[in-house]
Simulated assay, not measured.
Amino acid sequence: ADSCAPGASANKWQVFRAVCEAKGLLGASDRALAVLNALLTFHPDTDLVEGEGLVVFPSNTQLALRAHGMAPATLRRHLSVLVDCGLVVRRDSPNGKRYARKGAGGEIEQAFGFDVTPLLARAEEFERMAEAVRAERRALQLLRERITILRRDIAKMISFGLEEGIAADWQRLHL
């Protein structure tokens, strides 16, 4: 299991955005991320804080509603993807249901469902992955711009050669 520094915290939506950008490196699909987004809506706070109830326990019905009406079999498949990608951990109850057991003071003592601790534990890793994806995207954009400029320069040279009557096989060069 992933572990965090005591008192570690991270904004769940910033982590989610980083995971979305790094989805290709993680092996997560858009639909699996829609399920992760829905799971995160069941965590009441904006920040994920180590040691403060990082298990969410929605029913499949409620989770499917927040995942835009996803079919039950599809929901289960994408939950498995999230587990396989190391984004969430299943915390199964003895009867397989998702629920929380509260103590005398009303505080949750034990919860069964999906533990989102990996999002907190791996937040920096996800951010590094997202930055790598952004850097690659920027490099690709610069390369495309460079190719566009070079293609224009070549077209201008061919046009110049034709206009000036310079002997060459301009048709072949154009192709």
Rank of each mutant, 00 (worst) to 15 (best):
G106P: 05
P118M: 03
S93I: 00
S93R: 02
C85R: 06
L119P: 05
A100T: 11
S80G: 10
G96P: 11
L82N: 10
S93Q: 00
Q110Y: 07
R101W: 09
D84W: 06
R101L: 13
F114Q: 03
R122H: 14
R91K: 12
S80Y: 02
V89M: 13
R98D: 09
L82G: 03
P94V: 05
G105I: 04
A100I: 02
D84Q: 14
L119D: 08
V89E: 14
R122F: 13
I108M: 01
E109D: 13
R90T: 09
F112C: 05
P94M: 00
G105D: 15
V88Q: 05
G96V: 04
G86A: 06
V89P: 00
V83P: 04
N95Y: 10
S80F: 01
T117N: 06
V81N: 12
G103R: 06
V83T: 15
Q110P: 03
L87R: 14
L119T: 13
S93K: 01
K102Q: 12
L82A: 10
R122N: 14
L82R: 09
E107C: 13
L120F: 13
V116L: 11
L79D: 07
D92M: 02
R98I: 03
R77P: 01
Q110E: 15
N95A: 14
I108T: 07
R98M: 04
L119E: 05
R98S: 14
L119C: 04
A104I: 11
A100G: 14
R77F: 14
L87A: 09
V89R: 12
G86Q: 08
V88W: 03
K97R: 15
D115T: 01
A104S: 14
G105V: 05
K97Q: 15
F114M: 02
V83R: 15
G96N: 06
N95G: 12
L79P: 10
P94N: 01
C85D: 01
V89I: 06
L79H: 09
P118S: 07
S80H: 03
G96W: 03
